[in-house]
Amino acid sequence: MSITTFLELKNVTRRFSVEQPLFSAAPRELMAVKDVSLCIEKGTTLGLVGESGCGKSTLAKIVAHLLPPSSGDVLLEGESIWHGSHEVIHSLPRRIQMIFQDPVSSLNPRKSIGKSIQEALDVHRVGSSADRKKAVNELLERVGMRAEHYGRYPHEFSGGQRQRIAIARALVLNPDFIVCDEAVSALDVSVQAQVLNLLADLQHDFGLTYMFISHDLAVIGHVSDVIAVMYLGRLVELASTQDLFDKALHPYTQMLLDAVPVPVPGRRSVGSNQTGDLPSPLAPPAGCPFHPRCKQAMPVCSKVLPQWLEIDKNHHVLCHLYA
């Protein structure tokens, strides 16, 4: 682990027990996340991309200390967030926060937005009541809202405004690390751009480190320093944003890039050369998890799981094509 590594995932796996079919003796298990290892450097953004159902949100909850891993660990500046000391565990709400996809369901409709944001300060008894309200009002203005919005309720705001409120709530304890789980996917494109620019400004001003999760590779490319591509619970490629867009190695990453719309009138995107749908995580294919959809698949792909290889400096891939 380098001295600048802020957060490290070490062989993180998460299994879920699934209700067995009638008359079935064999237990069923869903492997949502499988042996994920990566590092996030301080002050940077790691983008995590993949299709719906690939395990992105499960991994986000593990990193945010909301869901324990079945095996493996998460280290925050070298200290385990799952097996560390009481002091480390107790400090996590002040250090790690999460912005969810849907601000409507993540905000309490019975509380004013000011009270929702201030709740964390009240729980941790930060300053006096007047100090807390002042801090919330300042934070509302910092995310593009107004202090007079303090007493209003979530239903009185647009989707973009509610997401700004959710961002303010995540920032109120002055954390180091924020997990953004599909934080802009429910917003209109123009509002997405505003929220992404706000997140970039906040990162610069507060020295934040982000894990940004999305199924949209164009959004991920805009905000990320490093991109991790996930497929059926496994990382299949990890590289800097520039390297990934210039020279994607894994056929799945190439498929995602081919699917990104080309913003030039009259010009068509390349189009995917892959077929099929995401397999069921309850019955994953043997060997390489992507081989049933890959037109470059070889006989070995259906039998042997590829090794995690470093092809270029800090550019890793899980694929037999490079063995």
Rank of each mutant, 00 (worst) to 15 (best):
M1G: 05
F6M: 15
V12K: 00
P21A: 07
L22S: 12
F23K: 09
A26V: 15
R28Q: 15
E29V: 15
L30H: 02
A32Y: 01
K34D: 14
S37V: 07
I40T: 04
K42F: 05
T44E: 10
T45Q: 00
L48T: 04
E51Q: 08
V63G: 00
L66Y: 07
L67Q: 14
L67R: 02
P69Q: 04
S71C: 15
S80F: 04
W82N: 06
H83P: 14
G84N: 08
G84I: 09
S85Q: 04
E87L: 12
I89A: 06
R95L: 09
Q97A: 05
I99L: 05
F100C: 10
Q101K: 05
P103L: 01
I117S: 00
D122M: 11
H124Q: 14
G127K: 04
G127W: 11
K133C: 12
K134A: 15
L139D: 02
E141M: 14
R142G: 03
R142K: 13
G144H: 04
G144M: 08
H149I: 11
H155S: 09
G159C: 06
Q161L: 07
A166V: 06
A166T: 03
L173P: 13
L173V: 08
F177T: 07
I178Y: 01
I178T: 01
V179S: 01
D181G: 02
D181I: 08
A186P: 14
V191N: 04
Q194K: 01
L199P: 06
L199F: 05
D205S: 09
F206C: 03
L208V: 08
F212T: 05
I213P: 05
H215Y: 06
L217G: 01
I220E: 00
G221W: 05
V229A: 03
G233W: 01
R234L: 09
V236H: 04
A239P: 12
S240E: 11
T241F: 03
T241M: 06
L244M: 12
K247W: 10
L249I: 13
L249H: 02
L249Q: 04
P251A: 00
Y252M: 08
Y252W: 09
T253N: 03
L257W: 08
A259L: 08
A259F: 03
A259G: 12
V264W: 02
R268H: 13
S272R: 03
N273A: 13
G276T: 05
L278W: 07
P279E: 02
P279K: 00
P281N: 04
L282F: 07
A283C: 15
P289N: 12
C294P: 09
A297C: 06
C301L: 11
C301A: 02
S302I: 14
K303F: 09
L305V: 15
W308V: 12
K313N: 14
N314M: 10
H315I: 14
L318G: 03
C319E: 11
